[in-house]
Amino acid sequence: MTNRRVALISDASQAFGIATAKRLAQEGVTLVLNGPPGPSEQVVANLAQTLQDEGHEVLVATSDLGDTETVASLCNDVVTRYGRIDLYVHTHNRIDRGAVASLPHVLVRDALNFNAKTAFLCTQVLGRQMAKQGAGCMVYVGSIHGEKPTGCAFSYALAQGALQMLCKEAALELGRLGVRVNLIAMGPVEGDDQQFYSDISDLYLDYQYKVPSATLGTADDVAEAVAWMASDAAKYLNGAIIRLDGGFLLHYMDHKMKR
């Protein structure tokens, strides 16, 4: 049993997850760092080692969070060890390129399951635990592509659209039980012009300059937002979808870009 807050990061191998882990560690949060099976595991192990060397309490998990039993087993491990779980940070974020007309059904399902079903299952299982405690918080790190189509990775957008509705539904049901659920709709970071290159949409053409400040976001921006959303300072925030993109989605007039 610990008096410190306990947080589970669903995929701590990705930039957003790594930055969030480091940020929460600064606040003395006990961390459960999950890495989906595969190459992610080593990245998470290294991150855990670094944080442990700095004196932080870290538990490593390698769960695919793919079905109820798997998630329940991880939840059980965490509660057995620490007696509680206070925060779930959903950082699963996999972008598969493919066209609506031709991407095989099974790959669309994979993308949906990886990006959104994991969040659904964790919200159910961890939500039950948090409800028992009478308090808790969930933050989903989502994307502006829950609103804006990509023109190159539609399965990702589908999952992001579903994740937004999960946030709103869970905010109602879990809100009555003391649990807040919010979503960060993250905008472009360095390299997204490659990830989201599209023959159809010029959204990412000159993307840096479409942000009014001409400065792209970083994983640290995500981490700061997660830390705030998870804190008591945000106790009235529930079911919110916060667009964290520096104003990128508002862009319209190319000739007015700051460059």
Binding site: G151, F154, Q160, M165
Partner: peptide
Amino acid sequence: MSKGGIKMLVRESAIE
């Protein structure tokens, strides 16, 4: 959630 996904399926299909 399925309707949230359909929203994006429509938008992606529209531009493609």
